[in-house]
Nucleic acid binder design. Structure first.
Length: 586
RNA sequence: GCGCUCGUAGCUCAAUUGGAUAGAGCAACGGCCUUCUAAGCCGUAGGUUACAGGUUCGACCCCUGUCGGGCGCACCA
């Protein structure tokens, strides 16, 4: 597996109850082993998991199914034997039974579920956090949008996804750093500089046509105005120079970066490190990487085959300096230098990732736009060649965002100037809505973002739906304070009043939260949190609708309010993890 | 042509990474406000998981092939 953390699940902290059941089954199997049902050297690998269907209990094990063959018994018979051998005397499990093809289902006592409320109250904002990933040092590189224009929605989605992956990993105890790679060295920066220079001259009455490939957006004019305001007419020339002055390029890049920082700030996304591509060139890091590859005899002068099937028209065979990436899983070898002798983007990327590796991270995670998918293998190849580790770099691809308004697609065109920027969308709908929606779908699938739906105050809007559930909890607290002046705290005796199925169901959901966080973190799949929160909010809305929480009965009232508070706490924890506010009032 | 990726209810998406009878929301239809926020809830209907094989106790998930959508495919980034 490429997941650098996958090993942790095995040793991962599970809930007390979960490990208790694991222990029960183990003990039973050992007893059967002593009875001669299994060979002495038999190693038991089975799973204790959460059944999908609540009728199948709180936990289930597949032990009998997995071990049926070696025990030479039909699964259900083996399950019966295991059941009979389970140690007695514990109080957490109310009953267990054999079901289906041979599962053993465990049903917890209400008391065990009820006591969860005390745990949540005690742990508060810490409930759901763990130390499963303690000792791991990771880096997540994300956004890394070119500083040549405003951020679009796809950038925003990558930004939010990366941000929450970091938060998730931190929630399980990992040490994580956020990094932004600034592409400030390539040809596109010169294009930006030239575009600005043309707009700049236009401000002084010198109109030149925009050459093919230059950036037409209004923001280029804004940069030109800023340049004029800051530095006057010092860059005026009678004719358009072949290369824009370095200072103009730098000015433009700095300006774009400033916008990007502002956009990220509005989404509440901080970075630890801003890494300049240019510094790789100026500080000899590319040469450093190439020396290492040469020492391993992985560089040669050669001519690449033209790509099969689809041939570029201007194809010409030419000798290039190539890296033997095909030895490390890439399809073909890749060029390190262009015809003019300068390094390719790939060469810089090798140096960059070598630099990351040298900084001693256990795992590198990159969040890239889906259009860079074809680039993964070559970077992984380079890292494997230089470090010997194929698993060091994990890349998550983020698919595009389609913008809608009231169900109708918003047509966008860069040329026509109808391009909708990330900033405009955040300003219209707010950071909470943008963040939650961008997290709702798995990043591998394209996402539809509807401007009106994102702001709707109905249950069609998942952001609202979850926040409203949280607000309802606080509404109850306010109402109680209005009446009695303080919020009651339930004790174990009162919590016994939580015996209805809807209440136990809510408790089961709450007990799953730490597992959801852990799984979302280990798999780097943030969308699991919004989906869980939607489920929890739905369960709470249902409960709220069918039960009077501020009941006349003091004990019942205390118990139900404690349950509501626990739910509110978990929703707040989940939303905080997503960087979304949990309002107390709506 | 090759590589990556996706294909699940009419629409938008889930499914504990191989578990039991595949679940939600929207749209459709029918209900619930003199009671803590109806900004909400309940019910009905909706499926050969694109298709065909294979692996095994068990497959939406893994393997092979086919069809269809997206992305990429010398020196750009």
């Amino acid at each position: 597996m490429r997941d650098g953390l996958s090993g942790l699940t095995f040793f991962g902290q599970r809930s007390m109850v979960h490990s208790l059941i694991q222990q029960l089954v183990s003990t039973a199997l050992q007893q059967l082993q002593q009875q001669g049902l299994f060979a002495e050297e038999q190693i038991f690998s089975f799973q204790v998991e959460r059944p999908r269907d609540k009728n199948h209990g709180d936990f289930a094990t597949n032990a009998a199914l997995v071990l049926a063959k070696t025990a030479r018994l039909p699964p259900r018979q083996l399950a019966e034997r295991i059941l009979a051998a389970l140690p007695a005397g514990q109080t957490a499990v109310e009953r267990c039974e054999v079901a289906g093809p041979g599962f053993i289902n465990f049903f917890l006592t209400p008391h065990t579920l009820q006591s969860l409320i005390l745990t949540i109250a005690e742990q508060g904002t810490q409930y759901g956090r763990s130390q499963v990933g303690a000792g791991r040092r990771l880096q997540v590189e994300f956004v890394s949008a070119n500083p040549t224009g405003p951020m679009h929605l796809g950038h925003g989605r990558g930004a939010v996804n990366g941000d929450v992956i970091v938060r998730l990993l931190q929630a399980i105890g990992c040490q994580v750093e956020r990094e932004y790679y600034i592409n400030d060295a390539g040809a596109q920066t010169l294009v930006l500089g030239r575009s600005v220079l043309i707009r700049y001259h236009a401000l002084f009455g010198q109109e030149w046509p925009m050459p093919e490939g230059c950036y037409p957006g209004d923001y280029v004019r804004d940069i030109a105005i800023a340049l004029r305001d800051a530095q006057g007419d010092r860059w005026l020339t009678p004719t358009l120079p072949d290369h824009p002055p370095g200072e103009v390029v730098d000015f433009a890049i700095a300006r774009c970066l400033e916008w990007i920082r502002e956009d990220l700030e509005r989404l509440n996304i901080p970075f630890d490190t801003w890494f300049s591509e240019r510094s790789l060139h100026t500080q000899g890091m590319i040469a450093h990487a190439i020396v290492q590859l040469e020492a391993k005899d992985l560089i040669y002068e050669g001519i690449l085959e033209p790509p099969k099937g689809k041939q570029p028209e201007d194809w010409e065979a030419r000798p290039q300096r190539l890296f033997r990436s095909s030895q490390f899983g890439d399809e073909v070898d890749r060029a390190l230098q262009k015809s003019d002798g300068t390094y390719t983007y790939f060469a810089a990327d090798i140096a960059y990732h070598l630099n990351k590796a040298e900084r001693g991270f256990d795992t590198l995670i990159n969040i890239w736009g889906a259009d860079h998918g074809g680039y993964i293998k070559r970077v992984q190849s380079a890292l494997a060649a230089l470090t010997g580790r194929h698993t060091l770099l994990e890349v998550r691809l983020v698919q595009m965002v389609n913008l809608f308004r009231a169900g109708q697609p918003v047509r966008m065109s860069k040329r026509a100037g109808t391009f909708v920027t990330l900033r405009e969308v955040v300003e219209e709908t707010g950071a909470d809505a943008v963040r939650f929606w961008f997290l709702l779908r798995s990043s591998g699938a394209s996402l539809d973002f509807d401007l009106e739906l994102a702001m709707a105050k109905t249950n069609e809007n998942p952001v609202f739906y979850v926040q409203y559930a949280h607000a309802r909890v606080h509404s109850l607290r306010r109402r109680l304070q209005e009446r009695g002046g303080w919020v009651e705290v339930a004790d174990a005796r009162q919590l016994q009043r939580l015996s209805e199925e809807a209440e136990l169901e809510l408790l089961r959901l709450l007990s799953r939260y730490p597992e959801v966080v852990e799984q979302a973190a280990l798999e780097k799949e943030p969308q699991k949190i919004p989906h869980y929160l939607l489920e929890l909010a739905a369960a709470f809305h249902t409960y709220y609708n069918g039960h009077k929480i501020l009941d006349e009965d003091t004990d019942l009232r205390a118990a139900r309010l404690a349950l509501a508070n626990a739910t509110g706490q978990v929703i707040a924890n989940g939303l905080t993890l997503l960087g979304v506010h949990a309002p107390e009032q709506m």
